[in-house]
Design a protein around this nucleic acid. Structure first.
Ligand code: MN
Ligand code: MN
Ligand code: MN
Ligand code: MN
Lengths: 224, 224
DNA sequence: ACTTTATTTTAGTTATGCCTAAAAATAAGA
DNA sequence: TCTTATTTTTAGGCATAACTAAAATAAAGT
């Protein structure tokens, strides 16, 4: 008789699955990428990948990279849902700022039950995106579509309805907020510097300048 | 040179300290008591007690029971504060009922930071007691005083202002709630059965009967 | 006091999940 | 292609925290 015992999913495994999902959206992730992302040594990662394969969370051949199975992706998205709902709660109801949120959510995501998650979802009003526009996976594991055009790619005179700020970095998010650059706001491209990629933008009637890097992080939909 | 490295307090250690606090309020706790309370085998408990002593969380001599040091009690109360604030949040804001609350809090209490705890405390309006009247330790580790006279000890005609329901049991709490017996309510002793200890009580103008056991769980302060 | 019972500790194992050092495989450069 | 550098895996260890079986101690019963 085959041992068909379903082992519990540990905190460590959950974090690996999420890391693989983040690092290898479509392609496959390398051991090193994951070691970097998780701040764990490469040998430890290598060993864990073997265990993840045994439990059918990933496709993995030594030396050839790793990607999630359907089962693995389901778990990754379930964790991501918890993470982003928790972040939303911390920011909107407990007065957290961007520097503190992620670290707290990184721990809490492993401790909350499905019941908690769905009650929190209701409490928050079933948000589709977190406060900086990251899509919150649904209970069924679907990712709500999110306009994704980088502001950096607009033509002069065009306006972007901001949907998302593609950064986890406290300083970046705080800085953008200080410029009123937030999801649902509208941002117009006024002028582009010939060299260096600096862009002049208008938001709320005021004009500012953004680096090319920042302009790449601002995503949304071009309007009229 | 003495190794003076302060080790992190694990989830397991936290639960042991809380269990010792609960089991041995003033006296000392036996290995067996703790094994029962924690649902862990006696040998495991015995071994952990040794480690707790090494780290100065407890006074412990083999075969002679265990009690918390000041350091141990501080940690126990810090955890209890987290536990009770979390339970309050679950009950008052997420629509949990008594059957679900404790299990969720038992896990979350280990995952939340001090920052989270104090922000939650603010969010909840700095409650001194949780919804069934258990005192919430303060940030400084003080337990707010809580009237503790059992209803069972009243004389005929006396009234108890309910402060606390001394039970963790879902069925008990749900049943009492169904009778409108809750903290801050007033409960009068109408009559006592000569045998068996049944008591007739009046609350909100209605009359009911309570067993002696239940009457012992209802604590508060005798008024006028 | 002596014997039986109950409690508690010791001994030995197991499972996770991390680490460093060394070996092996792959990728890059001459 | 051959050599060097990088990446990844293997080997060996350690810490935590649980378990069962057996031994030791303490408590109760006669
Ligand atoms: Mn995050
Ligand atoms: Mn995490
Ligand atoms: Mn509780
Ligand atoms: Mn706990």
């Amino acid at each position: 008789m085959p041992k068909n015992k379903t082992k519990p999913i540990s905190t460590a495994i959950e974090d690996y699955l999420k890391a693989i999902w983040l690092v290898a959206q479509d392609a496959s992730a390398s051991t090193n990428d994951l070691a970097l992302q998780l701040k764990i040594s490469a040998p430890s990662v290598s060993s864990m990948l073997g265990k993840l394969r045994e439990q059918n969370f990933v496709h993995y051949e030594p030396y050839r990279g790793v990607r999630l199975t359907e089962k693995g992706e389901r778990e990754a998205l379930r964790l991501l849902r918890r993470h982003r709902l928790i972040e939303t709660f911390l920011l909107e109801h407990l007065g957290y700022d961007w520097g503190e949120v992620h670290e707290e959510a990184e721990k809490l995501e492993h401790a909350v039950s499905d019941t908690f998650t769905e009650r929190l979802d209701t409490f928050l009003g079933h948000p589709s995106h977190d406060p900086h526009g990251d899509p919150i996976p649904t209970l069924k594991g679907k990712l709500p579509v999110t306009p994704n055009t980088p502001f950096a790619e607009l033509s002069i005179g065009e306006t972007l309805k901001i949907a998302r700020l593609m950064s986890q970095d406290k300083d970046v998010l705080t800085y953008l907020k200080s410029l009123a650059i937030e999801p649902s706001k509208e941002l117009q491209l006024v002028k582009r510097e010939p060299v260096g990629g600096l862009v002049h933008v208008e938001i709320d009637g005021a004009e500012t300048v953004l680096s090319k890097e920042l302009a790449m992080l601002i995503r949304g939909e071009v309007i009229v």
